[in-house]
């Protein structure tokens, strides 16, 4: 009986972020991987920003578009966009409980992270094209 209840009721609940979707370990692990990757990438990104402070548009575009810098910035953006998606999802399921509000928040989270992440990567790729 208990088993039946589980198979009938769990999948939709899990899909709606009520109760466990049984992928928590993977999510936790991805959060850690993006955190570890985030340390050197954040340091590198801060260094790149400092090097570009007050530089002209032409210089900035050239530096951001050069292969090594472009790759580092793209890795930083991709890693952080994924990291903050998971992190915000965690915050949402902790505080947002109404079913509609929760869906909207989770959808908005995916939307924001995708747009900000992909737009940034697009920008760097566009700059790389000219170099």
């Amino acid at each position: 009986m208990a088993h039946e209840t589980k198979t009938v009721h769990n999948p939709p609940a899990a899909a709606r972020y009520y109760g466990s979707a049984h992928t928590g370990t993977q999510t936790f692990w991805h959060q850690r991987i993006t955190s570890v990757a985030g340390v050197p990438l954040t340091i590198a990104f801060i260094a790149i920003v400092i090097a570009l402070l007050g530089r002209s548009h032409a210089t900035t575009g050239q530096v951001l578009g050069s292969p090594l810098v472009a790759i580092v910035v793209i890795l930083f953006v991709a890693s952080i966009a994924y990291h903050m998606w998971i992190g915000m999802q965690e915050i949402i399921v902790d505080y947002v409980h109404g079913p509609v509000a929760k869906y909207l928040a989770l959808f908005g989270n995916m939307f924001f992270c995708s747009v900000v992440g992909l737009a940034s990567i697009y920008a760097v790729l566009k700059l790389s094209n000219g170099v």
Binding site: V77, M84, M88, I91, V124
Partner: peptide, 23 residues
């Protein structure tokens, strides 16, 4: 700070997009 950095990421995206858009 995670929450603030999340929305603030738009500042980084803006900077990169502006560099890609032109002077």
């Amino acid at each position: 700070t995670g929450f603030v950095l999340y929305f603030g990421f738009a500042l980084i995206a803006w900077w990169l997009l502006a560099a890609a858009s032109g002077p």
